[in-house]
């Protein structure tokens, strides 16, 4: 107890001393700020060069982050929002809370064209079904093959999970009007639908399912951090839907220059080289040192699927209705 009082006092003094240094407040999702996410290393690296205090605030996931910003409205203390994805961008832009990006915008290494005035990508990944090579010897090569197989999968609910929504849009982008039929075919393969990614991935690791909806980069974690090369992602012929994670500058920020500097830093080698082994995603710009060893073993889809923010916004209610109808039978 004594130490915590001491610590509280110490923090108060430290806050007073820091009153001179400008503070940059970055809202992001919870796993970004966790001790195992990119947050701590990014904070250290940026503070070394900005002469400022970078403060992260974590809130749930990307959708929770946007809900929080909309709740706070123009009075939000955030200077930067980091961690939205393309599926949330339309709503985010409509909110009027974001300022245009500073020019010139940095060049990036994305598999698709990027030309958005408000949001700058910091990492990206492909959704994929991950399996255990020792248990599944001939993985399906498409949603149709998956539906015809007797493989069992766990997926996430699009209403409560970002990857869940990604899968919904993946099927819709690949199959359009036939999406409902694909879901009907998949319904007997689905063991269950979880609230979030963690539950689903945990159930897969416990052997409850043969495959789980995750990312093509997931096997890299097992390979690099655990020296376990048994996990792989199945390559689908119809292409893989992308998740591009972006950051934007809050229009009402009281630190506009610092926010611009952070956005520039986000495309730098220092920031981008932290991403692959903390967020387990592809960096938006390949750092000069290249990708970490092990990433070359990952599957590279021939075709990247991505709906524009506008399309995604328009189509998702219909896609959700199809999903519900097919799986509620």
């Amino acid at each position: 107890m004594k130490t915590s009082i001491f610590a509280a006092g110490f923090c108060a003094v430290a806050t007073l001393a820091a009153a001179e240094t400008p503070v940059l407040t970055v809202y992001t999702y919870d796993s970004f700020v966790s001790d195992w996410g990119p947050g701590p290393a990014v904070e250290k690296a940026f503070e070394e060069e900005c002469g400022c205090d970078l403060q992260f605030v974590g809130t749930g996931d990307g959708a929770a982050l946007l809900a929080r910003l909309k709740l706070e409205g123009k009075r939000t203390p955030a200077d930067i929002a980091l961690g939205l994805d393309t599926n949330l961008m339309a709503t985010a832009e409509e909110s009027g809370l974001f300022a245009p990006l500073p020019e010139p915008r940095p060049a990036l290494d994305l598999p698709v064209e990027w030309n958005n005035a408000f949001f700058q990508p910091f990492d990206w990944g492909y959704f994929a079904f991950v399996y255990d090579k020792t248990k599944v010897t001939s993985p399906p090569k498409s949603f149709r093959e998956l539906a015809e197989s007797d493989l069992r999968i766990v997926i996430q609910d699009p209403r409560s999970s970002t990857p869940g929504l990604g899968l919904l849009l993946w099927v819709k982008a690949a199959y359009g009007d036939e999406a409902g039929g694909i879901w009907e075919g998949l319904s007997d393969n689905i063991v269950t639908v979880t609230k979030g990614w963690s539950e689903a991935y945990g159930m897969f690791l416990e052997g409850e399912a043969d495959m789980v909806l995750s990312y093509t980069t997931s096997p890299a974690y097992h390979l690099i951090a655990e020296k376990d090369d048994t996990k792989a992602a199945a390559l689908f012929e119809e292409g893989h839907y992308m998740q591009i994670e972006v950051a934007g500058k809050i229009a009402g920020t009281d630190q506009p220059e610092l926010a611009d500097r952070f956005l520039a830093f986000m495309a730098s080698d220092r920031f981008q080289s932290i991403i692959p082994t903390t967020n387990w995603m592809y960096p938006a710009k390949i750092p000069s040192g290249g990708l970490p060893d092990g990433f070359e073993t990952l599957i590279r889809p021939a075709k990247a699927l991505l709906l524009s923010p506008k399309e995604a916004g328009e189509i998702r209610d219909e896609a959700l209705a199809e999903w519900l109808a097919a799986l509620s039978r």
């Binding site: 319904s187 269950t192 639908v193 979880t194 609230k195 519900l324 509620s328």
Partner: peptide, 8 residues
């Protein structure tokens, strides 16, 4: 949701 097997 996790044990219910789906959106039903």
């Amino acid at each position: 949701l996790a044990l219910g097997g789906g959106p039903r």
